[in-house]
Lab assay of single mutants.
Amino acid sequence: MQIFVKTLTGKTITLEVEPSDTIENVKAKIQDKEGIPPDQQRLIFAGKQLEDGRTLSDYNIQKESTLHLVLR
Rank of each mutant, 00 (worst) to 15 (best):
R72N: 15
E64G: 05
F45T: 09
D39K: 11
D21M: 13
D52A: 06
L43P: 01
T55F: 04
E64S: 04
K48A: 13
H68T: 11
K33M: 12
L8W: 07
P19G: 11
Q49P: 14
I61R: 00
T9R: 06
L67V: 14
Q31P: 03
F45L: 15
D52N: 05
T22V: 12
K29Q: 11
E16G: 08
D39S: 08
K11Q: 13
D52Q: 02
I30A: 04
T55P: 13
Q62I: 15
K6I: 07
L56N: 01
T12E: 15
I61L: 07
S57L: 05
L69Q: 14
D32C: 03
D21P: 00
S65E: 15
G10T: 14
E64H: 05
L69W: 03
V5R: 00
K6A: 13
F4T: 12
Q40D: 04
K27V: 15
T22E: 09
I61C: 01
D58Q: 10
T55R: 09
S20I: 14
I44E: 15
V26Q: 00
P19N: 10
A28R: 09
V5K: 00
K63R: 07
V26M: 11
Q31C: 02
T14H: 07
I13N: 03
I3Y: 01
K63P: 13
T12R: 04
I23H: 03
Q41E: 04
E16M: 13
N60K: 13
Q40W: 07
P38A: 08
V26C: 02
D39P: 04
V17N: 02
T55G: 06
S57Y: 08
K33T: 11
T12W: 13
E51N: 10
R54W: 07
I13F: 15
L56Q: 00
I23A: 10
K48H: 14
K63Y: 12
P19K: 15
I36D: 10
E18P: 04
I44G: 11
Q40R: 04
E24D: 09
E16H: 12
I30T: 03
T66N: 09
T66K: 03
I3Q: 00
Q62N: 09
L15T: 01
L8E: 15
I61T: 02
I3T: 01
S20T: 11
K11G: 11
I36T: 05
S20V: 09
L67N: 01
Q31S: 11
L69G: 01
R42D: 15
D32E: 14
Q40L: 07
G35H: 12
E24V: 09
I61W: 01
T12K: 03
D58I: 13
V17K: 00
I3F: 01
F45I: 12
E16W: 11
A28Y: 10
Q49C: 02
G35E: 07
L8H: 06
L56F: 03
K6L: 15
P37D: 12
N25A: 12
T9V: 06
F4R: 04
I23V: 15
I23F: 02
T9I: 05
T9G: 11
T22P: 10
I36S: 13
A46Y: 08
L50N: 00
F4S: 09
E34Y: 04
D21S: 10
I61P: 01
T7D: 13
I44L: 05
K48G: 13
R42N: 14
S65L: 07
L71F: 07
E34V: 09
M1P: 01
T66Q: 14
H68W: 03
A46H: 03
T22W: 15
S65C: 02
K29H: 04
N60L: 14
K48R: 06
Q41H: 15
F4Y: 04
D21N: 10
L43E: 00
K6F: 14
K48Q: 11
L56Y: 00
H68F: 04
Q40V: 08
E64T: 04
I61Q: 01
K29F: 09
P38S: 10
E51I: 14
F45S: 10
E64N: 04
K33G: 12
E18N: 12
Q2N: 15
R54P: 09
L15I: 05
L69E: 01
A28C: 02
T66D: 07
N60G: 06
T12I: 12
P38E: 15
T14R: 09
A28K: 02
Y59V: 04
G35C: 03
G35R: 06
I61F: 03
P19Q: 15
I36C: 02
G10F: 02
F4D: 01
L15C: 02
Q62R: 05
T22S: 03
L67Y: 01
S57H: 10
E24C: 03
K11P: 11
L67H: 01
N60E: 07
D21F: 09
S57I: 08
D39H: 07
L8F: 08
A28V: 11
K29T: 07
N60C: 02
T9P: 08
L15V: 06
E18C: 03
Q2W: 10
T55V: 14
T7C: 02
L71T: 09
R72D: 13
L56W: 02
V26W: 01
R42H: 08
I61N: 00
G47Y: 04
N60M: 04
M1A: 04
G53T: 15
E24H: 12
E34M: 05
D32G: 11
H68M: 08
K6D: 08
S57V: 05
M1F: 04
T22N: 13
L8T: 11
I13V: 08
P37R: 14
Q62H: 07
I3N: 00
Q41P: 02
Y59G: 01
E64P: 03
E51Y: 12
V5D: 00
L69H: 02
I13Y: 11
I13Q: 05
T12P: 08
R54Y: 10
I30L: 12
K48I: 15
T9A: 11
Q31I: 07
K33A: 10
N60D: 09
L50M: 14
L15S: 00
K27L: 13
I61M: 09
R54M: 09
R42F: 15
E51C: 02
T7Q: 09
L50V: 06
D21C: 02
V26L: 05
S20A: 11
E34L: 09
Q62M: 04
T7L: 11
T14I: 08
T14A: 13
Q49M: 04
N25G: 12
E24W: 05
G47I: 11
E18M: 09
I61K: 00
T22G: 06
N25T: 07
E16V: 05
V26H: 00
I3L: 13
L8Y: 10
A46R: 03
Y59K: 01
T66P: 05
S65R: 01
V26R: 00
I23T: 10
I3M: 09
D58G: 04
P38T: 14
D39R: 14
Q40E: 12
E24F: 06
L71I: 05
K27S: 08
A28D: 08
G10Y: 03
V5S: 01
L43G: 00
D52T: 03
N25M: 07
I44T: 12
I23Q: 04
N60S: 14
L67Q: 01
R72C: 03
E24K: 05
Q31T: 15
E64M: 11
L8V: 13
L71D: 15
D21A: 07
E24A: 12
E64Y: 08
P19V: 09
D21L: 10
P37G: 09
T7P: 08
V17A: 13
T7A: 15
D58S: 04
T66C: 02
F4W: 11
G35K: 12
R72M: 11
I44A: 11
F4V: 09
F45K: 03
Q62T: 13
K33H: 12
L50W: 01
G35P: 03
Q62E: 08
G53I: 07
G10S: 14
